[in-house]
Amino acid sequence: MVTGAALPVLAPGGDHAVATVAGAAALKDAAQSYTATDAIRATISARGSFAATTPEEIKETHARAAAAAIAAGMPLSSAMDIPIADRVVMPMADGSYSFTDGFGAARPGRSHLGQDFAAGIGTPINAAMKGCVSRSTESYQGYGVTIQVESIVNGQAVSTVYSHMKNGTRAVEVGDCVEAGQYLGDVGSTGYVFGSCLHFEVHINTVAIDPLPWLRDNVS
């Protein structure tokens, strides 16, 4: 059996199978009040005397706006509209993982802020809900290959984090927007981790919570 145990703690800052409600059963509200920065939107959304119109231009515009906001230490919502997620799914397909270290597990000088889904290297990871990508990197501190997605769920600002992914498998970049169940990348063993797993975190209004009860209450 493949096992995984993630070590680090993350401070909050897209045609594969999607888990079903049965997977959720096994687990048996104000949004972040950020004001959009019009200067960032205006500066990045226009290119010369015209606005982005093609899908490629729009994607580039989103990426530039997101990068500018994050570089300025601002939330992604200051540069683009964060979508409302109308459904939540498990981040991995039923039967493809087992739960190992959970929220609050002891770590040297800290506690574990997520839930580990132990699985073989190369197992697909999916977005838990609709949202926009605020982090996508091949190396983030002890988290290794990491993607972070910003969403609005039940009126709350929710960040989901996907870490220890396999190098070279990230399918989304900062500024991309994803749908629930969209492929993000593959399970790996990058960063500070024993074995291979998905380290999954949920932050509500920047505060980390136990992902399993939240998934139990929201997966549909």
Rank of each mutant, 00 (worst) to 15 (best):
D15W: 00
H16M: 12
A17P: 13
A19V: 09
A19P: 01
T20V: 06
A24D: 00
A26L: 14
D29V: 07
A31V: 11
Q32S: 14
S33Y: 06
Y34Q: 04
T35Q: 06
T35P: 03
T35L: 10
I44P: 00
F50L: 04
A51F: 12
T53Y: 06
T53S: 15
E57T: 11
K59R: 15
E60G: 05
A63G: 04
R64A: 15
A65D: 01
A67K: 12
A69I: 02
A71C: 08
M74S: 06
P75N: 11
L76F: 05
A79I: 11
M80A: 11
A85H: 05
A85E: 07
R87Q: 15
D94N: 13
G95D: 04
G95H: 02
F99G: 07
F103C: 00
G104D: 04
G104L: 01
A105Q: 07
G109P: 02
G109L: 05
S111I: 14
S111V: 15
H112P: 07
G114W: 04
G114N: 06
Q115M: 08
F117A: 09
T123S: 14
I125Y: 04
I125K: 03
A127L: 11
A128Y: 00
M129Q: 12
K130M: 09
G131K: 01
C132H: 04
V133D: 00
R135G: 06
S136R: 03
T137P: 02
E138M: 11
S139F: 13
S139A: 15
